[in-house]
Design a protein around this nucleic acid. Structure first.
Length: 150
DNA sequence: GCCAACGTTGGC
DNA sequence: GCCAACGTTGGC
C-alpha cells in the first residue's frame, strides 16, 4: 500500500467539508504530474494526508483513503466550471481523478513549519525547493514519522 | 500583495 | 526543437 499527500485550499474544500461529504471526487487537478499519479499510481485503499494550503496555517490536517479507480474528471467538460478545459472531450478526456474517503482528522494540525524544521523530513517531496505539486508520494518512513508527531 | 519557482504556450 | 512571455502555485 502506498501513501500520498494531497493539497487543497480550505477556502475551496477543507477537511471539514470532506468529513461532512464522506466521499468526494478530487476534482480540478490540472497538472500532468499530479494527474499521472492519480491515473497510474494510486490504488483503492491507499492512504493520503489531507493538506491545507494557501491559508493561515498550512499543514497536514487529516487522513483519507483512495476510494475509486481513476476516471475522467467531469468538471473538464462543464462549460460553467472554472475547471472547464475546452481542449478536452468525453471521447478523449485529458484529466483523470480518483474519489477520496474521509478517514479521520488529526488531533492537531501538523504545520508546514514543523515539517520543514524536522531533521528527518528534509528530503520529503513537500520540502524540496520550489515544489508546487498538489499531489505527491509520501514514503512509508515519512508517513509513520509524521503520524508520530500528532 | 509580493515574488520565487516552476509549467505551459506559441511564434519562429 | 528552442525559448521568451505568460500564467499558476503557494508560502510569507
Amino acid at each position: 500500500m502506498a501513501y500520498w499527500l494531497m493539497k487543497s485550499e480550505p477556502d475551496t474544500y477543507s477537511i471539514d467539508d470532506l468529513q461532512r461529504d464522506r466521499v468526494e471526487p478530487w476534482d480540478g487537478i490540472r497538472n500532468y504530474q499530479a494527474r499521472n499519479m492519480m491515473r497510474d499510481d494510486m490504488r483503492v485503499g491507499d492512504s493520503a494526508f489531507f493538506y491545507h494550503s494557501s491559508c493561515a496555517e498550512p499543514g497536514i490536517v487529516g487522513i483519507m483513503t483512495i476510494d475509486s479507480k481513476p476516471y475522467p474528471d467531469p468538471t473538464q467538460f462543464d462549460r460553467h466550471s472554472k475547471y472547464h478545459d475546452p481542449k478536452s472531450s468525453p471521447e478523449n478526456p485529458r484529466w483523470q481523478l480518483v474519489n477520496v474517503r474521509f478517514e479521520r482528522k488529526l488531533d492537531r494540525i501538523i504545520p508546514l513549519r514543523e515539517l520543514k524544521a524536522h531533521p528527518e523530513l528534509q528530503d520529503m517531496v513537500l520540502n524540496r525547493r520550489g515544489n508546487r505539486l498538489s499531489i505527491m508520494p509520501v514514503s512509508d518512513i515519512h508517513w509513520k514519522l509524521i503520524l508520530g508527531l500528532e
